[in-house]
Design a protein around this nucleic acid. Structure first.
Lengths: 231, 231
DNA sequence: ATTATATTGTGAAATACGGAACAACAAATG
DNA sequence: CATTTGTTGTTCCGTATTTCACAATATAAT
């Protein structure tokens, strides 16, 4: 039987590791599934199942050993230490991300930013280069992941350039939906859509999180009755 | 009756509407399920199913009428015009978001930003106020949605304040995982986790440089290729 | 008018995924 | 040592969601 390591699971693993490191630095040695579940917002059973799936064992009464888990997660996820990324588009958001402390804490280093206008004052410590230099930079520094924060109009072209340069992962903040390819994994974050989604959830009443029900225009709907129980 | 609109579906609907508006402004009148599917990165069948579920009909050969779809989606999603939001934490990212053009295009208005340090030069056109004034501001201006861009340490406290002020939706850029409640819907965007995830996908995909060796119990073949996918 | 063709609409199958329940068992207790 | 207790490991189950496959059918072509 083949288990599939789906994207959500990977994200959970990354979050587990985050929490484990925090706990470790606080001097804890053991942790229970419900602690981890609370911390990352999932059910304890799911935590156990995740670990079970990965053959990460705990102690039948003493919970999980933090060092052990942390080590194993590093082995599974890879230690993302001193990984270099670039930022394509040094506008407001790109510049802000260039100084984002979470990158340093996460073991990432922003190696350079690229922008058409190199002369703008940005007060960043990384080099800001023109886009033409991106491809060489990527190859010379063996960059594999890029953050895309250019204006919507330039998005498609930049993606093309990034892919040609050999970039294998893109975090896209552009409103343009970019598709992953076998050689380039893309994650789209569409801030305006997120906000719009929030407003939808909010407007349509008090906003239950996962379980959400909406009434459609009655004229259209011949909805069958279905009373829902709220968890 | 009530039909369950899950979060992913809502997001797709929002994206459909986005695309439809763009097509409309380009002068198109009709659109096919595969066009929309391509545009937002899902299968055509899913597009049809979504519309079918919402009783949005197309033409057996002529595709869907853009104006009609767009209208109906507005009715379902609500026209999010001139909705006001606030930004909690006017650091680099918060300040950048305060000027984010996508908000204006999406019909959102950043009404104010809040930060402990009001005196920093930020070159933004919105008022920047101290956190103590947030609750009054929210009540007086009937704000329902907030963006959270404070340092990790302050996150929990700020969430408490926001919830007490009556905020019903939070877009959280903090690394702290915040849970939704029945009265407050939260969406977490953890940039460092996203980057880490990208690195994992990239490394998994091949050409591992250094220490990346899967030394997991490979007996069963845990890793099965996951097709690249957008979010 | 007839035929061809493209596209929708949808029931059924496939998948994925989390939750609940509970047996197994290590540690604690006395 | 026996008993209690608490936590893991795992199986089963229900359900939500996506894809498949194809019938239905509107439009176009001749």
């Amino acid at each position: 039987m083949k288990k599939r390591l789906n994207k959500e699971l990977v994200i959970r693993l990354i979050k587990y590791r985050r929490i484990l490191n925090q706990l470790k630095s606080l001097g804890f040695e053991r942790v229970f599934s419900n602690n981890l579940g609370d911390a990352i917002g999932v059910a304890p059973a799911l935590v156990r199942k995740d670990f079970s799936l990965l053959f990460l064992g705990g102690n039948k009464r003493g919970g999980y050993n933090i060092d052990y888990l942390s080590e194993k997660l590093d082995a599974i996820l890879g230690k993302a230490q001193n990984q270099k990324i670039i930022i394509m588009g040094m506008g407001k958001i790109g510049t802000a991300l260039a100084q984002y402390k979470g990158f340093v804490q996460g073991g990432f280093e922003v190696a350079a930013g690229f922008d058409i206008d190199v002369s703008l004052p940005r007060e960043v410590s990384i080099p800001v280069l023109p886009p033409e230099k991106m491809q060489d930079f990527v190859r010379e520094n063996n960059i594999r992941v890029a953050v895309l924060t250019v204006p919507e109009d330039s998005a498609a072209l930049c993606v093309k350039m990034l892919k040609e340069a050999g970039i294998q992962g893109i975090l896209n903040f552009t409103p343009v939906e970019i598709k992953s390819t076998p050689t380039c994994f893309v994650h789209n974050i569409n801030i305006a859509v997120e906000i719009e989604n929030l407003f939808f959830q909010v407007i349509k009443n008090g906003a239950p999180p996962e379980d959400w029900e909406t009434e459609l225009p009655d004229e259209e709907g011949i909805w069958e009755e279905e009373e829902a129980e709220n968890s």
